[in-house]
Design a protein around this nucleic acid. Structure first.
Lengths: 201, 201
DNA sequence: AAAAGTCCATACGGAAGCGTATTGACTCCT
DNA sequence: AGGAGTCAATACGCTTCCGTATGGACTTTT
């Protein structure tokens, strides 16, 4: 079930007066989340963006949280699957770790969504998803660190450290203008991080 | 001006029917922020907590954002001053770094406030404060890393890495139950982080 | 003691959200 | 053609905030 998160054509491309599906609302919700956070995903706001009114929304969803939950479910499936799939072919653990770190740089939209969800971690619908995702990724990292030669205890700590660095970097980079990096500054930082956190191959 | 953030006695201790000052409102705002985030700092909510009504609030402050701004100002003065003051007496840079990392563990309320502010970093009043604070602390860290023997470029990167790890750790620890650590697990992690990020003394 | 200043209560208006109820329009099936 | 099902528009009530207006009580000043 490798359903791409963007497999449906944007509404605009499908003729102006098309009817909407639940999926369209979810895509719109993801866009809004990426741009302005979970709190900005309001029914009427979203309806205006999609060119319809609330009447449509409450046909597809029973209430707002149902949209949030449904949206997060699709995001979780896509995002974790996608993240791991891109590096599973690399057999050398050290190289794989480096690739993970480098790849986590590209997909900007994905990061924006992730950052938005982090900020909404007190929301009862969001919290369990983020707990699950964070734990899975840290566990995965720990396994790879161990495969790369670290002892099990150190691997767990290093995974937490690396993941914390990722989460914190998202905050600092996406939220604060003054702490942003230039393109080359970013590449430099990335290499520094890799050298610091990944045991030498 | 080392005014402690808690130098005023709690309202309850000062006799029941005492009048309030702007400072009382700011303290209440900090408490609310630590507990439920910046968004939870609503005028009427806070008034109820303090045992008065809105009428009082709009005597002391012109509008809600004025309270937020005023509260952040006092927090910034206290928090950064306090954070640096506690370690400035240590002259050995490596040892000082270790102390910084270890001390940043204790003051729980301070962390909760910091985490709440991070999550509200899109708020126009909060953003500039957090940008300033983050930049200052990263710059400070970079200087100490350099004093500890790293070359200037590496020191800047390492400072960013360490600060990101701190910010990310706050998120993971304070928000997600499942990613929390036991007391000794925490100490272990801390030492692992110190060994990984601080050059050997 | 009278006046001025300080702090709070109460009542009100208005904006944003959520969710419901009802009706309309359009499509598809029989 | 007529009915069933699908999607959307409109209008409404409800809650939760913000901010204003006004008056009362208590304290300090003169």
């Amino acid at each position: 079930m490798t359903t791409a998160l963007r497999s449906v054509a944007p509404v605009a491309e499908r003729g102006e007066k098309q009817r909407l599906t639940a999926r369209d609302w979810e895509e719109g919700a993801l866009d809004l989340m990426a741009d302005e956070g979970v709190a900005a995903v309001a029914v009427e706001t979203l309806a205006k963006r999609l060119g319809v009114t609330k009447g449509s929304f409450y046909w597809h969803f029973s209430h707002r949280d149902a949209l949030i939950a449904s949206t997060l479910k699709r995001w979780e499936e896509y995002d974790t699957h996608n993240a791991i799939a891109r590096v599973e072919s690399i057999e050398n653990p050290g190289v794989r770790l480096r690739e993970i770190f480098r790849l986590t740089a590209r997909d900007v939209r994905s990061h924006r969504i992730y950052a938005a969800l982090l900020k909404a971690a007190d929301h009862p619908v969001v919290a369990p998803v983020m707990e699950r995702v964070s734990k899975e990724r840290m566990d995965y990292l720990a396994r790879v660190f161990e495969q790369a030669g670290m002892d099990p205890v150190a691997a767990v700590h290093r995974a937490r450290l690396a993941y914390s660095a990722y989460v914190g970097f998202l905050q600092l980079t996406l939220q604060f203008r003054s702490t942003r990096l230039s393109q080359e500054g970013y590449e430099e930082y990335l290499e520094h991080m890799i050298d610091t956190l990944i045991p030498a191959a």
